[in-house]
Computed example of a mutant assay.
Amino acid sequence: MFSSLLLVLLTGAVAWAGAAAGFATLFGVALPYVAAVVFIVGMVWRMVYWAKSPVPFRIPTTGGQEQSLDFIRQNKIDCPSTTWGVVKRMFLEVFFFRSLFRNTVADVRENDPVSNGPRNIYYSSLWLWFFALLFHYCFLLIFIRHFRFFVEPVPAAVTFLESIDGIMQVGSPRFYWTGGLVLVALLFLLGRRLFNRRLRYLSLLNDYFPLWLLIGIVGTGLCLRYFDKTEIAQVKVFIMSLAHFAPVAPEGINAMFFVHLTLVSVLLIYFPFSKLAHMPGVFFSPTRNMANNSRRVRHINPWNPPKQYFTYAEYEDAYRDAMAEAGLPLEKQPDKAAE
């Protein structure tokens, strides 16, 4: 945990020192271009790899009654048997995290009055679902809001989302609720790994690093907006120059902006090779995108190579004499005249 935090802090410190020392072009131009190329190529490579991976078995994850007799009610979402059922299941999974909503927690209750001793109990845990959904939707809205830095004039849809996000304006500049809520959600997800003993035991560097990295990105973004403010007009001119592949000198922009941009670039580089790639990966998962119809439709294993089958008649023709000498039953006796 501390090594991943140290790595994020070191990345931010290097970006800060480099921008202050006159290397703003390196962190503001070269690194974002490299990050964009790595992100696009890496994601395309992973999706092509997933698409080409054979599925030897039909292995959809099921959570309800499968299709059976007519008088038995089928769970058509948790156990779909048609393509339309899979589409509905994927829609609920992608937009509402349905499988996470059904999450349960197992715990051991000591001195249980029912069993007069320890007893395993299972109960629903919706906090993870709520904060995960909160984080993803807030992050999506923040991502859409940032399009105002890339285009001019700003699309009406982006302006509308900004007005909704900051509808309860508190002070100046306008406070965007998604900025505060996404930080709360990230802190919950981090605290869950820190304070849950079993989850902390299972957590590795690649579990903590993206959380600290996202917290760093959100934290520097909030700092730029409310505390260490920078000139928004200059930032927009600079970002639009990057988007049009005609970068201008990043003059008059403070070092915190380059820390924010560097952390975003590191996230883009890290994204295709991490667990964060589950965003497109869910569409390639056979546990989600396959219908549970293995009893009605034969699934052909693509790993099975073409085989030269040896029928029993061909086998008997080849070994008839030896089988006759051994006293084995034959469908056709050896030809005595040939002997």
Rank of each mutant, 00 (worst) to 15 (best):
Y312R: 13
G117C: 13
F245W: 15
P56N: 05
D317H: 07
S81H: 08
P210E: 03
R225A: 10
V248F: 07
C79S: 12
A249C: 10
V237S: 07
K52M: 15
F209C: 04
K307E: 13
I167A: 12
L126Y: 15
S99K: 10
H136A: 09
L6W: 08
P286M: 07
V237C: 05
F209M: 04
R192H: 14
A106P: 06
W303N: 15
R225C: 02
H146L: 07
V94G: 00
Q67G: 00
A156D: 13
N206Q: 11
S294R: 11
L330K: 06
S294E: 10
L330E: 07
F130I: 07
W50S: 03
Y312V: 10
L181F: 14
V264R: 04
L7A: 15
N116K: 15
M256V: 15
F175P: 03
E325T: 07
A291Y: 04
F188D: 03
G28H: 04
L194T: 11
V94M: 02
S115I: 06
D78K: 03
L190W: 07
F188H: 06
A255F: 08
I253V: 09
F310G: 00
G18E: 03
V266C: 07
L183D: 02
D112Y: 08
P305I: 10
D70V: 11
N103T: 04
E316T: 02
S99W: 05
V264T: 11
G216Q: 02
T61G: 11
L194N: 05
I121Y: 12
M1W: 09
P118F: 14
E93A: 06
T61R: 12
N116L: 15
F96V: 11
L211S: 02
Y319N: 09
Y123A: 05
R225K: 14
K52S: 14
L211F: 02
E316Y: 05
A17C: 13
W16E: 01
R174D: 09
A20Q: 11
Y201A: 14
Y319K: 13
L134E: 04
S115V: 08
N196L: 06
R197K: 14
F101D: 01
P286I: 04
V235A: 01
A318R: 13
V297C: 02
A36K: 03
R145C: 08
A233W: 09
R198W: 10
F147L: 15
P153Q: 06
P54R: 09
Y201V: 10
V34K: 01
S124F: 13
K275Q: 13
L134I: 02
T83Q: 10
